[in-house]
Design a binder for these strands. Structure first.
Ligand SMILES: [Mn+2]
Ligand SMILES: [Mn+2]
Ligand SMILES: [Zn+2]
Ligand SMILES: [Zn+2]
Lengths: 138, 138
DNA sequence: AATTTAAATGCAAAATATTTGCATTTAGAA
DNA sequence: TTCTAAATGCAAATATTTTGCATTTAAATT
């Protein structure tokens, strides 16, 4: 079991299990969002053993604690690379290679507040996805 | 068949059919995003007749031409209330009443561009959802 | 107004995706 | 090592989405 995954799990206060480690490994090795099934297949291909049901259960848990995100336009999952304020992330999603990079931007939140205020809206969180072409693809 | 729906359909260059009108009516009568099934049920309740399969097909078409949006966090659909640049909308989604209001904000896009540029990213569109409390709920 | 035709619809069934109940295994505390 | 709650796997139940095909319908044409 990879050390990086143990560390993450401990950090998030989760029991360290084979399956959880495998799901993390699968997600750590890509910058592209993955579906439940893709994660499952990927694990099997690399000699890991896991049930698809377990992948479902693990991803649900990971999402609840904010360890993974859903990629907005596809619904697939990506590891949160930044542990900033939960629910205030911006994702940069490349139409070309599928890579998703995250960023947290305080100014963005301020701007968000300004827009919201002018509509009488009090924002608590935001989900934002910028869709375009990443640096390496352009 | 409601006139408002005929007008919308003509505006988007779609054949004017009973089913399409019913789906629009169902969506026009709420500010809350609806799932396929919810739209289907709603139509049946109001004496309309439609197949769930048709709801699927109609929503897919509506989404492609930008007549409806998917609400990011739930995956359900909401009528586009603004016909601005396609793919550059901000949704204000109320945690309390579920209402989703849209806004298009040029400054937001500029800000978006700035963030993106600093990551070497060229944005073509954005999906943004602000989650919080709307004016009437607060 | 009747005719024509491609597009839209409904139905049944297939294919997928997700959830659940329950027996077994396992991580981590004692 | 022993113990226990949490995690897992399997099989089956549900739920969701898609597809093939026969029928209907919108709207263009005559
Ligand atoms: Mn924010
Ligand atoms: Mn924009
Ligand atoms: Zn790229
Ligand atoms: Zn509200």
């Amino acid at each position: 079991m990879k050390q990086a995954t143990r560390t993450l799990l401990r950090q998030y206060n989760l029991r360290i299990t084979q399956s959880r480690s495998l799901v993390l490994q699968a997600m750590l090795s890509t910058k592209t969002p993955l579906t439940h099934k893709e994660i499952h297949r990927k694990i099997l291909k690399t000699d890991g053993s896991i049930s698809l049901v377990t992948v479902y259960r693990i991803l649900e848990a990971y999402e609840n604690i904010g360890l993974v995100h859903r990629h907005l336009s596809t619904g697939s999952f990506i590891l949160c690379s930044l542990q900033g304020e939960k629910g205030h992330h911006v994702m940069l999603s490349c139409q070309d290679c599928g890579t998703v990079a995250e960023c947290i931007d305080k100014d963005f939140c301020k701007h968000e507040d300004r827009i919201a205020k002018s509509a009488g809206f009090s924002p608590k969180a935001h989900l934002s996805e910028l869709i375009g072409i990443c640096s390496s693809c352009s």
